[in-house]
C-alpha cells in the first residue's frame, strides 16, 4: 500500500494545466478572424483540441487495457480508468462546443452529421465503461471486466463510424460547409496546432493527477477491506444484567 500513496501530492500538474489553458486562450483570441466564419471561428480552437483529446484518451484506454490483460498489473488498469474519465469529459465538452458553434453558425443546435452522431454514441459507450467500473469492489475482477470492455468499445468504434457514415451519405449529401477546409490560413493552422499541443500537455497533467486519484481510491478500498473495525460501533452496548434495578 505504501507504493499506492505518494507522500506529497504533486502540485506541478495544476500549474501546467493553468498555463496550457492560458496559452490556448491567448492564441485563440489574438489570431485574426476567419474570412468566412468571422469571429465564430475562434470556437474551433477549443472544439477541435477537445475532440482530439477525446480520441486520444480512448486510444490510451484501449492500449492500457491491453497491457493490463497482458501484464496483469493494476497500475495499467488505473491508467485505463483515468484516461476513460478524462475522455468522457472531453467528449462531452467537444459535443457542447460543437452545438454552440452549430447554433451560432447555421442556427441549429444539432445536425445529424455523421461525426456528431458518432461522437454522441462514443460518449455513451464510455459512460457505460465508467458505470461498469462501479459495479464491483473486487479490484482484479473489475480490472478484467473493464479491460475487455475497453477493448470491445474501440473495436466497435470503426463499425459504428462506417455504419453512420453510410447511413448519412446514402440519404442526404453533406450540406454543411466544413470550416476546417483545406484552404485554411497558415496563421490559423499554426494557432490550431498550438491549441492542440497545449491541450495535449493539459491531458498529460490531468492524467498525472487522475492516476494519483485512482491509486488513492484503491488504497482506500484496500484499507476498508482489510481494516474490519467494529460492526456497529456506538450502536452496540453491553447487555444490562442488573435486571432493571
Amino acid at each position: 500500500m505504501a507504493t499506492l500513496v505518494q507522500k506529497k501530492s504533486p502540485v506541478w500538474p495544476w500549474i501546467v494545466m493553468a498555463i496550457a489553458g492560458l496559452v490556448t486562450f491567448v492564441a485563440a483570441m489574438t489570431v485574426p478572424p476567419d474570412a468566412v466564419q468571422g469571429q465564430l471561428s475562434r470556437i474551433m480552437y477549443v472544439h477541435v483540441p477537445s475532440a482530439w483529446l477525446a480520441y486520444l484518451s480512448f486510444g490510451v484506454t484501449m492500449i492500457a487495457s491491453g497491457i493490463y490483460l497482458w501484464k496483469r498489473d493494476l497500475e495499467w488498469d488505473r491508467r485505463a480508468h483515468a484516461s476513460a474519465e478524462i475522455g468522457v469529459f472531453f467528449t462531452g465538452l467537444a459535443i457542447a462546443l460543437g452545438m454552440i458553434w452549430g447554433k451560432s453558425t447555421w442556427g441549429t443546435w444539432w445536425t445529424w452529421d455523421a461525426r456528431l452522431t458518432l461522437t454522441a454514441i462514443m460518449f455513451f459507450v464510455y459512460l457505460g465503461y465508467l458505470a461498469l467500473r462501479r459495479t464491483t469492489d473486487d479490484m482484479d475482477a473489475r480490472a478484467k471486466r473493464a479491460a475487455v470492455m475497453g477493448i470491445l468499445a474501440i473495436v466497435q468504434i470503426p463499425l459504428v463510424h462506417f455504419s453512420v457514415i453510410w447511413w448519412q451519405t446514402l440519404h442526404q449529401p453533406p450540406s454543411i460547409i466544413k470550416p476546417e477546409g483545406p484552404d485554411m490560413d497558415t496563421v490559423m493552422v499554426l494557432t490550431l496546432l498550438t491549441a492542440v499541443a497545449s491541450f495535449t500537455v493539459m491531458y498529460i497533467a490531468m492524467m498525472v493527477k487522475r492516476v494519483e486519484l485512482a491509486r488513492l481510491e484503491d488504497a482506500v478500498l484496500i484499507a476498508e477491506q482489510t481494516n474490519t473495525g467494529p460492526a456497529a460501533g456506538e450502536a452496540v452496548v453491553a447487555p444490562d444484567l442488573s435486571g432493571g434495578a
Binding site: 469571429q39 465564430l40 475562434r42 477549443v46 477537445s50 462546443l97 454552440i100
Partner: peptide, 11 residues
Amino acid sequence: NWVMFGYGVAY
C-alpha cells in the same frame, strides 16, 4: 457573444 459563451462554457 457566442465566442465568449463558448469559451465560458469550456473553461
